[in-house]
Computed example of a mutant assay.
Amino acid sequence: VASVVIGKWARKRQDLTGQIFPVFWTSVGLIIILPVIASLIMGGPFTISYPEFGRFSITGGWSLEPEFLALLLGLAIYTGAFIAEIVRSGINSVSHGQTEAAHSLGIRGSFTMRLVILPQALRVIVPPLTSQYLNLTKNSSLATAIGYADITAIFAGTSLNQTGQAIEVILITMLFYLSISLLISMFMNWYNKRIALVER
């Protein structure tokens, strides 16, 4: 909450005075460093569980299932390639004259990208990005093919076998994916309207 408040205050301050406040590093301090310091002051109430050989198997620790790792890597690499191409094309759609104009005003490179290029590129990036997020949600159901128990496997597999109510179970599965897709679409449409240029 403090990071959001400081971000809004920094934007107003920049509009009034032109001075840039380091919002990113302040947010990192508030979100990461402050809780770590509080944890150390309180005596570190967290414990780490190490894996140990038990009588029949390994106990403790955290296990990473190979099916989950395969799903994570597959979806991340496949979807990441599409999203990277969308972002690249969006940035290339902004005229190079915008970068030259920013540099002629004395704006540094990192601020040029954040304050000049990206706000214009987002108008091109957001619509296809919405489609990729929806595809990612639907592609996650392919986890069943590699043996990972996701929502589809639980609903359309386990629940269907135990109840025998095929229509109801498949309807619940469809409603779940429909709800997630509608929420993503609503949020991305709201964000798209928020970043759209206002005609005067």
Rank of each mutant, 00 (worst) to 15 (best):
A2G: 05
V4A: 15
A10P: 07
R11N: 14
R13L: 10
D15N: 13
T17F: 12
Q19T: 03
F21G: 08
F24C: 02
F24P: 01
F24Q: 04
W25V: 12
T26L: 03
T26I: 09
V28K: 02
I32F: 15
P35S: 02
A38Q: 05
A38I: 08
G43E: 01
P45K: 01
F46V: 05
I48S: 07
P51R: 01
E52R: 03
T59C: 06
T59S: 09
L64S: 01
L64G: 00
P66G: 04
E67K: 00
L73R: 00
T79Q: 08
T79S: 08
A81R: 01
I86P: 03
V87A: 14
N92T: 07
S93R: 02
S93K: 07
H96I: 08
G97T: 02
A101C: 15
H103V: 11
S104I: 07
G106Y: 04
G106Q: 13
I117S: 07
L118K: 07
L118H: 10
L118W: 05
V126G: 07
L129R: 08
T137S: 15
N139H: 13
G147S: 06
A153S: 15
A153V: 07
A156Q: 13
T158Y: 02
I167L: 08
E168D: 15
E168Q: 09
V169Y: 01
L171E: 09
Y177G: 09
L178Q: 10
I180W: 03
S181F: 02
S181V: 11
S185W: 04
F187Y: 14
W190M: 09
I195H: 09
A196C: 12
V198I: 06
